[in-house]
Design a protein around this nucleic acid. Structure first.
Lengths: 250, 250
DNA sequence: TTATTTATGATTATTTTTGAACAAAATTAA
DNA sequence: TTAATTTTGTTCAAAAATAATCATAAATAA
């Protein structure tokens, strides 16, 4: 086994477990420890890993986290439908707020080539739009690892510093009776911040979330101006929303 | 069997397994090793494969990673040395500012398992530390795609909202005569913002940047309290920095 | 045909890679 | 802290691979 093969195996193992051990690796690759050490020295010099006593640790260079991409694949068909509609509302030159939901994340492919400015608290959105035509602005603050987004007072305040033409927010729950509801205070706070500082707010809501209430109601239905949903939504129900003055896209 | 036929077989085998071995190939093609070597030399010359000691590998296997990772891998050995020293200055519970340079990025693996709070304007740092023990806070603002970081007034102000125990910033240039200098105003602005709001500022500077001036001087040398460099730095030079009251780590 | 070029193989010197031994350095345990 | 253990760096030797050189066989041209 030559160096090239060993290099592959070492990096592969490192990528899986994060750290490796000289002894274990020597046994695994059936080669002497001194050779493993020399290999690690070369790889460390190339910046592919960081040498530690007795082994090495990885420099994970995965720019786009995987977990979020997987989650956003749930109900992909319906979400894409909604996102296409949402993207159609955007015009060149717009300043757009995007929230950190998995639905809104899927708007990215549809707006990549638009000459617009996006302000968002979502790291996946930033990562996804990096290198696109879109000019980016991130709402700073404490990072919520699970949601991969900035939350809290500072993040909410950030949106207050800008004035957007349009805000696009995902909806956790909406009902005729109780209006908007969220599964966490963090979500609700950011949603309100986005909407207050945008000329128009578009609520993205796939049909499974219509007439669903979450534990925290945070805004009455008349707060909603534009609602975007998918083709599976019941027309009778949407008509009821329309009679309340909400513009519904489907 | 002529060269054309052998070439086909060699490339085919290489495509299947990724790497090949001179001896095996010689046996497989029933031809001498020296001829195989000559074949490989020709193919390597044409860029169809990469010659290794004892064989060859596919071109795709030797491909380098993405842009920021590439940059952070330059002088990786020296940078890691510096970063290890830098990480040793951090204590559990600290609030730490990290800037967006490629040197500071390499601190990440050393602080992953620390119970600290990191405030940074660097997206790679956030991505790298996501899912670690570290609590994260991103300095929002306009995103500079090239640097993969937030810059400008808003980002600088963000650091002003917090008080850090320690700030770690990369140095573009430093000299006894002209102090600190940067290659862009953006860099300088963020550096100053970090340092002003931290109890102690550590300047990370590999030995190649010592006594180098960049086009924009932005702070005198007495602004520097702590300087961290690598073992290649000249002791006589560092002594001069020390006599000026700077604490030098090496 | 013969002369010339080209491809291949064998031999040997050189270089590269690998492993072993042991002192130095770093880490861990006491 | 000091002592014990582990890991690493260094030096050297063996093994493997390569490059250089020359010789032979095959293909090509005159």
């Amino acid at each position: 086994m030559n160096f090239q093969v060993r290099k592959q195996k070492i990096l592969e193992k490192l990528d899986q477990s994060g750290v490796i051990d000289v002894k274990e690796t020597a046994v695994a690759l059936a080669i002497s420890e001194i050779t493993i050490r020399r290999d690690l020295a070369v790889l460390a010099e190339d910046g592919l890993l960081i040498r530690t006593h007795g082994g090495a640790m990885k420099v994970s260079l995965s720019q786009v986290p995987v977990s979020f991409a997987q989650k956003s694949a749930v109900n992909a068909g319906q979400k894409d439908e909604i996102c296409r509609l949402a993207a159609q509302q955007i015009q060149e030159g717009d300043v757009v707020f995007l929230d950190c939901g998995s639905t809104v994340f899927r708007m990215c492919p549809f707006i990549r080539n638009m000459n617009i400015k996006v302000v968002t608290n979502s790291l996946p959105v930033i990562n996804e739009l990096m290198g696109s035509m879109v000019s980016l602005n991130f709402a700073g603050g404490e990072i919520d690892v699970e949601r991969q987004a900035a939350h809290g007072k500072i993040a909410a305040e950030h949106f207050g510093k800008y004035r957007a033409d349009k805000a696009f927010v995902g909806v956790d729950g909406i009902s005729l009776q109780n209006g908007l509801s969220a599964s966490s205070e963090k979500e609700a706070e950011i949603t309100m911040a986005l909407c207050h500082n945008a000329k128009a707010a578009f609520f993205l809501c796939d049909s499974t979330k219509l007439e669903k209430d979450r534990y925290l109601p945070f805004a009455p239905l008349n707060f909603v101006q534009h609602l975007i949903t998918d083709s599976s939504a019941s027309d009778e129900l949407l008509e009821e929303y329309r009679t309340l003055g909400i513009r519904v896209f489907k």
